[in-house]
């Protein structure tokens, strides 16, 4: 299996299977959640649930000051690797080319140097996140194997992507193949771990926001 064939598999059948399992898994999970339904709220409310739901989807992105004060490092670090990961994914020109080729959507990207720097930042931030998870009593207590698996499959694409872009470790063909395979691993693992939160967080915030909006309480 030469590096070329390895890359061809990654860009070809590998991606097909990863996309299939990802879409299949996420859609299955969405149906599993929605199928359980929700009883309507008969109580006399003060506001509109819909507005509350939409508002919370946005406002819940920022932390409450009281909780932020207790764990500023963990929370800020959370923003760093989330924003870093998403910036590298959606603002790196070759990635934009991927979305453009597959979905016809295109948008301006960031200069490659900045993306490279963001990549490094994200890698260190994810490493810090692991360190925090291993040292904080609460996080250690809560974490299961799937948390660490989710962490690993999130770090690998950024790490291998950085190595590929900078032509390090393996020859570029092989390194690019490893990078694409690591992304496929993320796609395959995602629907079966907490990574479903990449979509379900909007649903969860919506439900709580809806109830708060209906009752007219802060959310």
């Amino acid at each position: 299996m030469t590096a070329d064939a390895f890359l061809s598999f990654a860009r070809g059948t590998g991606f097909d299977w990863a996309l299939t399992i990802f879409v299949f898994g996420m859609l299955l999970r969405l149906f599993e959640v929605l199928s359980l339904g929700r009883k309507p709220d008969l109580s006399e409310g003060r506001g509109s649930g819909v507005q509350g739901g939409l508002k919370t989807i946005v406002t819940r992105t920022l932390p409450r000051a009281a909780v932020f004060a207790r764990e500023p490092v963990r929370i800020i670090n959370g923003y760093v690797f989330h924003i870093g990961f998403l910036a590298v994914l959606f603002l790196y020109e070759p990635h934009i080319e991927l979305f453009d080729a597959k979905m016809g959507l295109s948008w301006p990207g960031l200069p490659t140097g900045i993306i490279n720097a963001l990549g490094v930042l994200t890698i260190f931030s994810l490493l810090l996140a692991l360190a925090l998870r291993l040292t904080s009593p609460v996080l250690k207590f809560l974490s299961t194997g799937s948390d660490y698996l989710a962490w690993l499959v999130t770090l690998l694409p950024v790490l291998t992507g950085y190595l590929a872009y900078n032509h390090m470790l393996l020859p570029y063909t092989a390194m690019l193949a490893v990078h694409i395979l690591s992304v496929e691993l993320l796609m395959v693992v995602a629907p079966f771990t907490k990574l479903t939160h990449m979509f379900s967080f909007m649903l969860a915030r919506w439900y709580q926001g809806y109830r708060a909006g209906h009752r007219g309480v802060e959310s």
């Binding site: 070809g12 991606f15 097909d16 996309l19 070759p94 990635h95 597959k102 690019l176």
Partner: peptide
């Protein structure tokens, strides 16, 4: 197709 683009029709 750029190198970053999967080869099969998604």
């Amino acid at each position: 197709d750029a190198l970053s683009v999967p080869t099969d029709d998604a």
